[in-house]
């Protein structure tokens, strides 16, 4: 069994502020540090663990993105022990929405019929859209298990625990192939050390065109478009309550919540 991990590059979580671009077409990327989206690191870590356990033969990374993402993916994901990276980076692919990106990823993953498990993060932390895993599963025709916090497989069958909301956890079983999205708690995410990063510099990066994947620019033309990026409205200024003693302060708080904010 081979594993595909879909990963993307997003602003590092420590980025304190993100500014919209002046023309509102996206964000101003200057000065932003990029990293592999954290849930995708969970996915890559799980993949590598399954290879170490000798359940899987190899892990292959897939991304739709920019040539400029390769260095970040090398050190943040390839270096963990993945075999190679497939970057789908034509202009049309870069302009695709989640639907188009999923179609391209499905076509690229489908080229290797040894791949029977796709691991993704439960969401990417830039668009926060949670669309690619489901769309990808649909294009592959494989079952999807979302928000998985525990996963075991023998290469043929799998058992996964998914967080279906409200604190409810379901244990589900099925047969591979399948698409699994990785939530917190699944693995201890790994971060590569320098020798691994050095080694990853030699790993292969494949850059198929959409044509190589049997797709046209039309096939991935966006159906959803994101525009008018802007700052969130400022929060109304808050205030620190002080009634002298704690009991009076809390009375002030209860009154404010009930009569002013009207949330009680």
């Amino acid at each position: 069994m081979k594993i595909a991990v879909c990963a993307k590059v997003a602003p590092d979580t420590t980025t304190p502020r993100i500014q919209p671009a002046a023309d509102g077409s996206g964000i101003d990327t200057s000065g932003i540090k990029f990293a592999v989206s954290p849930y995708d690191v969970f996915a890559a870590t799980l993949g590598v663990e399954l290879v170490e356990k000798k359940v899987a033969a190899s892990v292959h990374l897939f991304t739709v993105g920019d040539e400029g993402d390769v260095a970040t993916l090398r050190s943040g994901a390839l270096a963990l022990g993945c075999e190679d990276l497939t970057l789908i980076g034509d202009d049309a692919a870069k302009a695709a929405d989640a639907l188009g990106a999923s179609k391209a990823l499905a076509a690229a993953i489908g080229k290797d019929d040894g791949i029977t498990l796709v691991l993704t993060g439960k969401q990417a932390i830039d668009g926060d859209s949670v669309q690619v895993p489901g769309m990808l599963a649909e294009f592959l025709g494989w079952p999807l298990v979302s928000m998985v916090s525990s996963f075991e497989t023998d290469g043929t069958t799998f058992t996964a625990v998914r967080n279906v909301g409200g604190g409810v956890q379901e244990t589900v079983q099925g047969n591979l192939p399948a698409v699994i999205t990785c939530d917190k708690g699944l693995v201890q995410p790994r971060y590569a050390k320098l020798p691994q990063i050095m080694k990853a510099k030699k790993k292969a990066v494949h850059t198929p065109s959409l044509g190589d994947l049997g797709l046209s620019a039309d096939d991935v033309a966006p159906k959803a478009s994101h525009t008018a990026y802007g700052e969130p409205p400022p929060r109304p200024p808050g205030r620190v309550l002080d009634g002298g003693d704690l009991s009076s302060t809390l009375d002030q708080l209860v009154t404010a919540l009930r009569d002013e904010a009207k949330v009680l």
Binding site: S129, V130, G134, E138, L144, S146, G165, P222, A224
Partner: peptide, 23 residues
């Protein structure tokens, strides 16, 4: 934007060949 929406709605969009605006 519930669990169902995160799991099933993107699949529905792909099945219908349409786009989705999330969250």
């Amino acid at each position: 934007a519930s669990y169902l929406a995160k799991d099933a709605i993107p699949r529905l969009a792909a099945r219908l060949g349409t786009g989705q605006g999330s969250e």
